[in-house]
Design a protein around this nucleic acid. Structure first.
Length: 487
RNA sequence: GCGUCACUAGCUCAACUGGUAGAGCAAUUGACUCUUAAUCAAUAGGUUCGGGGUUCGAGUCCCCGGUGACGCACCA
């Protein structure tokens, strides 16, 4: 019976023996189904209907603790985050069932039938008239009191984290609620949810290095998308005037507290709108997501009250530093950065230097939700030129707690301008910028058929979930974050 | 990629300047028919992340490697 290939510790051997003993008693420890009359949550919510009534109900869940008292035992059964105590009395369940129940281990999934009562101390308890094992556990759970703290194990074995740490389960419930709220918000406003390719022959829509893969039959190189922007805009050309997609995007870059190589964005595009309309829409979304208006994120108090601050990219730099960086050459920017004590190590291009000055001097301090607006043309190849101001585009980035949570523009719909912007990117690439865009003739062709004026937004779901669940690492809001292989 | 720190029983953690690896929970056996971090008694459980070195002696010191956390860099 024992499998010598398995390297079992003492506890695992004992659990394996309990499994064998149950089978010897004629009990199959892996049942096919169980029809519970109520979830534990329902039992708790409707307890007045059951307590001391002559009603038998049944529940199922994981046995997470036990207290044995000779001919009586108490176990705690948990389903989701709710748990209920079960009272198993030899006189009630009978000799056989009682002996079987003694062979159950913490971690086993059980089904219980019985009547509900309150103990002397007032605890809601199900007195078992029948109890069955539904699934046998063969490894011990982490300890009930301290839970599972080891971060590496929580990420690698997320199922254990979810079994043992309710806080973790609550974060992922909240994540689902947030996504649902945004989906509902957009759907109610006639946005159509679509799916666009993850495998793309040409990648685009963001500055990033892609993951590369290969399709055998067509013998073609493919990229995992870094964004879905260019596909959604093709749909705007096609007359889907309001469109959105929750998209897993993939960027082949470093990992840190706010970056996972695969992450989720929702992008939405609205024909006949501009970036001002989209700012309103973003504010409205957060009105739904944060009805309480104020949240605490770490040490920060964040107030979502509308309207959010508008922070002009160039003007805010000038206000903070006294330097007008508009229209400056790359060399002049380097000079200014030096005077401001900004470390430019690794940053060479015009756009990156500008961005670094902005991040260091302005963005860091934007705690309350703010829209950074009117970015330099050079770092925004898909955004329309500003209708009044030379050298900048109609673009905004929502910043909350110093963190970028999105990106948006009045979308560039002039195909000739778009081609020129791509050409500039191709030049940058030739000069060694590995994140520069690829030329996408097919996309330009779509614009040549005419795209209505359009506003578009991308929101980083993971970061929004971090903010709203007070988590400080993206790994704590992604169920299975990328880790190195264990060796 | 670089730097700092961490890794000890199934889990959570101890172990002083190098000197017999320990506790709580979980587990096993026994007692106990309203306990609830049950209690009481006894028992068992270890490749101290892996490899090498120094030493009479290494969880502890040194070197190489692994994984993770944090910071920096890269990056939205």
């Amino acid at each position: 019976m024992e499998n010598n290939n398995l390297d079992l510790n003492v506890l695992e051997k004992q659990m394996m023996e309990n499994l064998a003993k149950l089978r010897e008693m004629g009990i199959e420890p892996y049942k096919y189904n169980f029809n519970a009359t109520h979830s534990i949550k329902e039992l708790i919510e409707k307890k007045d209907e059951f307590v001391d009534k002559d009603i038998e109900i049944s529940i199922a869940g994981r046995m997470i603790s036990e207290r044995k008292h000779g001919k009586v035992m108490f176990i705690d059964v948990k389903d989701q985050i709710e748990k209920v105590q079960v009272y198993i009395k030899k006189d009630i369940v009978g000799e056989q069932k009682y002996l079987a129940a003694k062979l159950f281990d913490i971690g086993d999934i059980v089904g219980v039938k019985g009547k509900v009562f309150l103990t002397h101390t007032g605890e809601l308890t199900l007195a078992a008239s029948d109890i069955d094992i539904l699934s046998k556990a063969l490894k011990p759970l982490p300890e009930k009191f301290h839970g599972l703290k080891d971060l590496e194990m929580r990420y690698r074995k997320r199922y254990l984290d979810l079994i043992v740490n309710d806080e973790s389960k609550i974060v992922f419930r909240r994540r689902s609620e947030i996504i649902n709220s945004i989906r509902k918000f957009l759907s109610e406003r006639d946005f159509l949810e679509v799916e666009t390719p993850i495998l793309q022959p040409i990648y685009g829509g963001a500055f990033a290095q892609p993951f590369t893969t290969h399709h055998n039959t067509h013998d073609m190189q493919l990229f995992l998308r870094i964004a879905n922007e260019l596909y959604l805009k093709r749909l705007i050309v096609g007359g889907i005037n309001r469109v959105f997609e929750f998209a897993k995007d993939f960027r082949n870059e470093g990992i840190d507290r706010t970056h996972n190589p695969e992450f989720t964005q929702v992008e939405f595009y609205q024909a006949y709108a501009d970036y001002n309309d989209m700012m309103n829409l973003v504010e409205e979304i957060f009105e739904v997501l944060v009805p309480e208006k104020k949240i605490t994120y770490g040490e920060m108090e964040i107030d979502f009250t509308r309207p959010w601050r508008r922070v002009d990219f160039f003007k805010s730099i000038e206000d903070k530093t006294g330097f007008d960086v508009r229209g400056k050459s790359t060399e002049e920017l380097k000079e200014i950065a030096k005077k401001l004590n900004i470390d430019l190590e690794g940053k060479k291009t015009y756009g990156k230097i500008l961005d670094e000055i902005f991040s260091e001097k302005v963005q860091k301090d934007l705690v309350n939700p703010s829209f950074v607006v009117n970015h330099p043309l050079e770092i925004s190849p898909l955004a329309r030129k500003h209708r009044e101001i030379e050298g900048v585009v109609e673009r905004f980035e929502p910043i909350i707690a110093g963190m970028e949570v999105g990106n948006s523009f009045s979308e560039l719909n002039d195909p000739i301008d778009q081609r020129e912007r791509f050409m500039k990117q191709v030049d940058e690439r030739k000069q060694g910028d590995t994140e520069a865009f690829q030329m996408d003739e097919d996309f330009i062709e779509s614009l040549m058929y005419g795209m209505p004026p359009t506003g578009g937004v991308g929101l980083g779901i993971d970061r929004i979930v971090m903010l709203l669940t007070n988590q400080h690492s993206i790994r704590d809001v992604v169920l299975f974050p990328l880790l190195k292989k264990e060796k």
